[in-house]
Design a protein around this nucleic acid. Structure first.
Lengths: 323, 323
DNA sequence: CATGCTGTTTGACTTTTGTCAGCGCGCATG
DNA sequence: CATGCGCGCTGACAAAAGTCAAACAGCATG
């Protein structure tokens, strides 16, 4: 991206207006341009992330339910998207909340792992622009197209672009047709090096996939509905970064997983902040598995999902809580 | 601070207006209140930090001088406050820049050490309000009043208040009249525990003090001008968190330091992000000492100071030069 | 139970900001 | 060297946001 001479004046206008609280006409006088130009500059500054306007996500974290869920599931923080009738559409709201929380969780010079799926795609789509030079966004899983979404590499790239951060992709398919080929590809230095950096991430962003016939993996052609059904009978409960996990959140020992090029599950688990976002009501069981598997430290769900999850976990970990 | 019922509606108004981009009258309709109230709420939301409007400090980091200084002094990042005639008053500007940079450097759940001095006081004074629950602000040095400034504990408290963070103080004088008493006080559990948490800080904010007759320590009565003059002759070059350091940034072996209750210098050095802000033109030598001593990783200075520092460090590889 | 105090809400008014057609300048092109 | 094209700047107007006095509600107090 070329450095435009206007960037400097954009910055300066934004600084005087937002940080010093000058009025637009004062800024205009100071910079010796028309006020109309100042207005234009300020809009551009907001659009490009030179100026960042963030609303605290406290609103969504301020909930007894959130506290209870944190305790019951051993999570670091939970955000709840309300669903009462005069609230906004929760499905549309969730990615917005997720994007805001995500931005709050990012620190300077963080390395962030981004996985893939419908949810992540929607989050990328509403991600505000910011000026986070020094941040690196890395791709957590191999590539695969889907009718309605970006590919994983595009997802990573889009988020990096909006944050003005560095995006690091790797170009391998998510699934290969043979285990041998997958193994060999994983050994390739260019792939191996990339995967080796994942444990250095400080933050991960993903959802958990379901294992129904219309799940993301099936829609994208990574697996057939039939294959997934069989896996389900064998104990599969959800999908993390393209890999199938069982009800305890452990990697399934199956052909699909062996043919997959993606972040190693233990690497993901070792990332300090693991931000999981779940939109769909049907994903209770996958989410339970993901939590058991240690894939979430920060969780964003709807109120109804939170209640069901709490109930589900309450009976699962009866011994853990008193009072 | 009591939780007011209005906080919730404040949050909601801010969310709809800033995150969803609704107009004030739309928000008013949505919340069933008058537009004038929405305007009031939004101002309060900004004032209390529920909404955070931050301008990238890139403007001040985008400078060849900054890059050169980073290389020459081995610093992680440098911000330069310009001094050209049609810029704002650099003395007034520096604390504003420092506060903005400081906010950018803070991550969720960080522990921040704050020292004391005129500069830190000015920074606290222009610190924007933010909603950083989870952040902890700790006091780096013992207490001492000064005519024009807060005490160290008030400085810490003020910054914590503005960030909506937790402030942790310790109540001991900065200097005691006898070394024995200082030593005994340092052993006190309540003090010792506090000092022990300092190496867990992720970010420190301070300046470096000078050793002239009108330096901060003298003005506050911690030392007489004469005592400081003698220390200067013995090789003192600056002051870090109340403690006198020599030209290499090492703790001076002197009575004052032994009578001081403050963060151990090695603890300070072990903090990953050490943000040093220097306003005064006369502080070149103290700053050189502080940099040699490893007390800065992030530096904020004026353009002229940056130039002099660069020159000084260029020839610094030779021997120390007295003036 | 009236009284004064404090803090919130609102309608009406003022100020500030957003927008957009049109102008002017630089630059490539015939 | 004239011509036309693209782009950024501006003036004037419309829209939105800020402000304030007055009304009001809650609450402690004489």
């Amino acid at each position: 991206m070329p450095i435009r001479s206007t960037d400097q004046v954009l910055h300066k206008a934004a600084w005087l207006y937002y940080t010093h609280g000058m009025r637009q006409d004062e800024v205009a006088k100071h910079l010796d341009i028309s006020r109309a130009s100042v207005a234009t500059y300020l809009r551009r500054a907001r659009e490009t992330g030179i100026v960042n306007i963030a609303t605290s996500t406290q609103l969504f974290a301020d909930d007894v339910l959130a506290r209870q869920l944190e305790d019951a599931a051993g999570l670091k923080a939970v955000w709840i998207v309300p669903e009462d009738r005069h609230a906004l559409d929760p499905t549309a709201e969730m990615p917005v909340v997720a994007a805001a929380v995500f931005l709050e969780l990012i620190g300077k010079d963080d390395r962030i792992g981004v996985a893939w799926g419908r949810t992540v795609y929607h989050i990328a789509d509403v991600m505000p622009f910011a000026d986070l030079q020094g941040v690196t966004v890395v791709q957590l899983c191999g590539n695969l197209g889907a009718p309605y979404s970006y590919r994983p590499d595009q997802c990573t790239t889009e988020i990096a672009r909006r944050l003005n951060a560095q995006g690091i992709n790797f170009y391998a398919p998510l699934v290969l047709s043979s285990e041998r080929l997958a193994q060999e590809l994983r050994q390739e230095p260019v792939i191996q090096e990339q995967l080796a950096t994942i444990p250095h991430c400080t933050l991960a962003l993903y959802s958990v996939g379901g294992i129904e016939a219309d799940s993301h993996l099936v829609k994208c052609g990574a697996l057939t509905a039939e294959e997934l059904r069989v896996l389900g009978e064998a104990g599969a409960a959800g999908v993390i970064a393209g890999q199938v996990i069982d009800r305890d959140g452990q990697l399934m020992d199956c052909a699909h997983n062996r043919r997959c090029i993606s972040a190693d599950l233990d690497s993901i688990r070792s990332i300090p902040k693991r931000m999981m976002v779940v939109q769909e009501d049907e994903k209770l069981e996958p989410l339970v598995a993901a939590i058991k598997g240690g894939f979430a430290s920060h969780l964003i769900v709807t109120a109804s999902m939170a209640r069901r999850l709490l109930e589900r976990l309450g009976s699962a970990t009866v011994a853990a809580k008193t009072e």
